[in-house]
Design a binder for these strands. Structure first.
Lengths: 180, 180
DNA sequence: ATAATGAGTTCCAAAATAGAACTAACAAAT
DNA sequence: ATTTGTTAGTTCTATTTTGGAACTCATTAT
């Protein structure tokens, strides 16, 4: 499988990994959210090689996450800014930071935090359902193959509830088709 | 910079990339959430080489995201299951899937969806603040360096509000220190 | 006795990444 | 007028990672 193949995958998660599935891209986005916009700014703060940085910025631009725009002429210079798609990545960053802080412990505190714009209070992110307001996590949500009627999976699940519940069905099989 | 260096980074996002910062790991987790548990199950569904799969599963185990447990003896066989840390990754997966579906379009529909366990309705994920209930996105949240007093950043921001707001401060500088 | 299953490991080729030096287009300082 | 500095890259080689296929090992099924 080639790197680029993920970008055409039908699975949105695979497409997402086609964008951020490497050591640097997410860190570049982090810097964007912190206000960095220029090549040397990214390079100095991340320590990434100039070669890779150039390649990644180009890819982010191609994918519509960043846009490259001139900020001066003579000599012509460009800076990189988050597009709307890029800015909408913020909740993913928040959820990820929250997960890592709880599950990948570190001796040092995080070098930055997320605060609300109006009060400046540190945020406590929870994913919820827009309609029901219900909290969304592995206990409340199920991941179902599109071919499977959701009701069927839920019914099967109700008949054999698991003490060890997670997002998915609890069976001993190693394939999805066996569980649906 | 070596791969492994990220795992000791003070930035939680960097540590997270130390776990999922490659083409395959997140897809392996996706399969876990869909109920896959065995080596050959992952291998057949993903098409990843057996070599890399073995390496990735080992790493996920080391990082405490998956646990390896015997499911039979004679011959001894193990399966991989999400630990608590692994299950808590669900909101990240949801946020990411939602972002990709909105921002990385595809001709085909997604091969799976997230539904609530109790009603089976498709979920509509929104990140909110546990305390205020406020929606968390690039318009409501600010990412601030830990050294900076949040109030300072917000005050500066209020004096020079941006029409093009994103998570971070709006300045022309390429370094953070200039903005705080 | 022969094939199949499940979970890997080993080997080599191909691709990606690291690290450093080099270029181009100008501006500022001496 | 020449040297130095800035910004945004590109080019080069060496090292690491990944891809692809075949091989192992223990055990069950035919």
């Amino acid at each position: 499988m080639k790197w680029h193949d993920l970008n055409g995958d039908t699975c949105p998660l695979a497409r997402a990994m086609g964008v951020i599935g490497d050591r640097w891209t997410l860190l570049i986005l982090r810097e964007c959210f912190l206000g960095v916009r220029r090549f040397d700014g990214f390079q100095k703060r991340l320590g990434v090689t100039r070669h890779l940085l150039a390649e990644r910025l180009k890819r982010l631009e191609t994918m519509g996450v960043l846009e490259r725009r001139p900020y001066q002429e003579r000599p012509l210079r460009h800076e990189y800014r988050l597009t709307t798609a890029g800015k909408e990545f913020a909740p993913v960053l928040l959820a990820m930071q929250d997960w890592a802080q709880h599950n990948l412990p570190s001796a040092e505190p995080a070098p930055f935090t997320f605060v609300t714009r109006d009060s400046g209070a540190k945020v406590c992110p929870v994913l919820t359902d827009r309609d029901s307001g219900q909290e969304l996590n592995h206990r409340t949500v199920l991941m179902v193959p599109a071919t499977t009627a959701a009701s069927k999976v839920i019914e099967a699940h109700r008949r054999a509830p698991s003490t060890n519940s997670d997002l998915g069905p609890e069976t001993d099989s190693s394939t999805i088709s066996d569980t649906g």
